[in-house]
Structure formats: structure tokens, C-alpha cells
Amino acid sequence: MNCREAKAEIALLVGNDLEDAGARESLRRHVSACPECRGHYQRLKQTFKVLEQADKTETFEVRESMWPALSTRLRHRQQEQKPSRRQWWPLASFLAACIVVVAIINTPAPEHSHAPVVDRGMMSELFPVSGDVSQGPLPHRDEPTTDDSDTPAGKQNKSKPNQSHPGR
């Protein structure tokens, strides 16, 4: 143990915070052999008494409990929070209603179930377009939205352009 370590342990010892018996014993041996650390121990023990004297349990006596004031503050905070929640309800309801209305407007009218459904290959034959396909008419809702020309099913459709979707 060196003097630096000893000083730290002495500081713990004076406040009864050096609980390890082995550490206490090695500190005792060091202090008995080191006059400087022995002096430090004596001085620190004196100073620590000052701290203990300042540690008065009667430092503060609660004049009266703060709970009545606190419970009032808690109630006020809760009341402030409640109306703000209510204020959101009309806005939230209005927004929900708007979403429903927009959804209804954007929903296309029901198609004739027996109408023949054509794929993109057939459309291009009936209405040949040049340039970007995206500029052409919007695909029908019942049309496959993905270009499956590279898939086996797509190739099959290309070879049989007049064949409608199975099951229709």
C-alpha cells in the first residue's frame, strides 16, 4: 500500500466506511510505519468531528405537510389535461369524417361483372400507343397492376391474347 492509497482508505476509515477487515489491517500496518500518514489520520479524525457536529438531525422540521398544497396542484394539473383531450375530439372526428368521404369519392362505381377483362397485351393490340406506356389510359381496376410479362403467366397471356382471366 502506498501513501496515496492509504490517504483514500483513511478517509473511509474515519467515517466507518472501511468495512473490509483485510483492508483495515493493511492500512493499520502502513500507518504505524508511515509518520506522514499517521499525521494525516489524526488531522482527518479531528476534522471529521466537525462534520459530525454539523450533522444535526433537527436541521429542518416540516412546519406542516406539503401534501394539501401538492394534492391541489395535482388536481389542477389533471383538470388542465382533461379539457385539452376533449378539445382534440371534434378535430379528430372531423378528420376521420373527411377521410371516409374522400375514400367514398375515390371508390369507382361497381363495374359490370360480366364485362370482358383484357390484359395489357390485348389493350396494346386494340389501341396501339407509341412512347411511354404510363401516358396511356389508366389501367382498369381489375387489371393486374404489375407487369408480369417476364413471368411464365405473362408469357402465356401474350401467346393467347384473347384469353380472358380464368374464372371470369
Binding site: A8, A11, L12, G15, D17, L44, T47, V50, L51
Partner: peptide, 17 residues
């Protein structure tokens, strides 16, 4: 915490002296 406590007591002692 123990290291800080030791340091604090030593510093208090120096300042008090």
C-alpha cells in the same frame, strides 16, 4: 461513490485547515 467520498473528505479536511 466510495472513491469520491474519500476524495471529498480529504478535500474538506484541506479546506478546513
Amino acid at each position: 461513490i466510495r472513491w469520491r467520498l474519500a476524495e471529498a473528505r480529504n478535500r474538506f479536511q484541506e479546506l478546513w485547515e
